[in-house]
Amino acid sequence: MIDTATFAGLDVHARSIKAVALDIMTGEVKSATFGYDAAAAADRARSVDPAARCVHESGVTGFELQKKLSSLGVDCVVGAVSKMMKPAADRRRKNDRNDAEFLARMLSTGNVAEVWAPDDECEAARDPTRALEDARDDLERSKQRLSKLPLRHGLVFDEKAPSGRRKKNRTQAYRSWARSTSLAERADNEVLPCCIDDARQAAESKARLEGLVKAEAGRPGWKRRVDSLCRLKGIDAMTAADLVFEAGESSRFKNARSFAAWVGPTPSEHSSGESVRKGGITKAGNKHLRKTPVEAAWHYPTRSAHSKDLAKGQAPGQAARRHAAKGVRRLVARRGSMLERGMRRNKADVAAAREPACWAWAAGLMAEEGREKRPASPSGRAAIVRT
């Protein structure tokens, strides 16, 4: 039931906000422009209608404005920009006022898909994991540059271990060899130490961020959920922290299927009538989280169906432990059946990635306070029992 007749769309930028208020009873449209100031936006909304509802698109400005407006007593939501279908005619008349009016009209008709807004603690927990992902990429690039610079000048690392096996490039032995290497030109000899320092600093940054993530995962608000997810094979503390921090609350997803669809390793579909066509994964959610269940699926071809041993300091609930043990048996058997059918390994990894996400959702849900959940079925459906 609509409890207000006024809807406001906010086109938010780093330094300005364009607000358009729509009265659905009279059709009147009012617009205003002011700086990026939540108090000014709240005053404008209250001056038009104290019960006005506001919306702004999801984007780089995050959830700060929505949180401030809510704290000031203004009903504000964040709309998923990926689910807003604008008319083709609007492509050639884009401006801030039209964008804000479009948001107001979408909200008035109930066509805004609201984005779940994490609290400050959840947002702060996400930052170390995302920074860690960037640090891993930086380390990979720096090691690649370091290994290829001597190679371009005809110098090849060919040191062997006592067993006779050739040592890899991305090792401490390679870095020691690179420090002792002398190139023909002075400029090259100055660049090589820079490449070595970049690789060392990237490795130090990665190690420091891993410590931050582990410390954050050990906080009381997260530890039980992280420990519960760690019971699944292929999911360590870093992976569990990624899933828990990005999801925020497992209970905001109605079932395991919706969580897997949000993560992204779910087949796309283009079916009509009797024609059923399924394609590659949907790639929903964010790129950072989507890789996590795929990497977890890598481990199952070489793992036994026995449950994991508890690591030092882990304290998951009994329900989560039983659920994880069942999940490991299921995932090992399913992954093995894919290989027996002759499915290519890469395809099987992605095909099996959906299920670890489903089991992880159920384990996280059981770890949340005041809830207990029966083990999920292979289809991803699971009943929730409140305690």
Rank of each mutant, 00 (worst) to 15 (best):
P301R: 01
N189V: 10
R303M: 08
G218W: 03
G280F: 11
T239C: 13
S182M: 13
T181M: 12
A305G: 14
L183V: 08
A187F: 13
L212H: 12
P293D: 02
W177A: 03
A297K: 05
G273N: 06
S180T: 11
S250Q: 07
S205G: 06
A240Y: 04
S228G: 01
K223H: 11
G280I: 10
R231C: 14
C195W: 15
S205E: 07
H288K: 12
N286V: 09
K206P: 00
L243A: 00
E216P: 03
A241I: 02
Q201W: 08
V213N: 13
F245C: 05
G280H: 09
R231N: 13
K291R: 13
H288Q: 13
D236S: 12
L212C: 13
R303S: 14
L229I: 09
V191G: 08
K214D: 11
V191F: 09
A241F: 01
D242H: 15
G221I: 05
R277L: 12
F253R: 07
K278M: 07
R231P: 01
H288M: 11
L289Y: 07
P193L: 04
T266N: 02
A240L: 06
S272R: 08
A202M: 02
L212G: 06
L183Y: 01
R200E: 04
A178C: 01
S268F: 05
P267T: 11
G264D: 01
V263A: 03
